[in-house]
Amino acid sequence: MTSYLQARYHRQQVPRWWWLRRRTYTLFMLRELSSVFVAWFVVYLLLLVRAVADGPAAYQRFLDWSASPWVVVLNVVALAFVAYHAVTFINLTPQAMIVRLRGRRLPPRAVTASIYLVWALVSAFLAWLVVG
């Protein structure tokens, strides 16, 4: 039940554009939005797998479709967002996860650095697979 006093409280509302009011809020919202592009890359990868499974003609069609300007633009934007997603995810990891090595807590920088190192190694391996 609302008392007479409570009825006179001023209820503060969160403005609709609250996330534009502070840089950190905006960066957070962009991080949230980046998930959509992560999902797009999953769909794109599945389309690629299906095209490969359907034979050379389907694969060629997929390549032609991928070269169309709007898909290229979409993928460039998606790449930027996915990179942002990955970087923010890695940077937040030591806050979310305490990593212990032989009973000792690893310093946050070591956690971040090791993930970047693994990322670089995997990327180098994939680049070698494609180019080498």
């Binding site: 502070r22 950190t24 957070f28 949230e32 937040l92 806050q95 979310a96």
Partner: peptide, 15 residues
């Protein structure tokens, strides 16, 4: 959703 603003606002360095 891990906005993280709480940790930035904390005057006592709590996370």
């Amino acid at each position: 959703t891990f906005v993280g603003e709480c940790s930035r606002a904390c005057p006592k360095g709590v996370d």
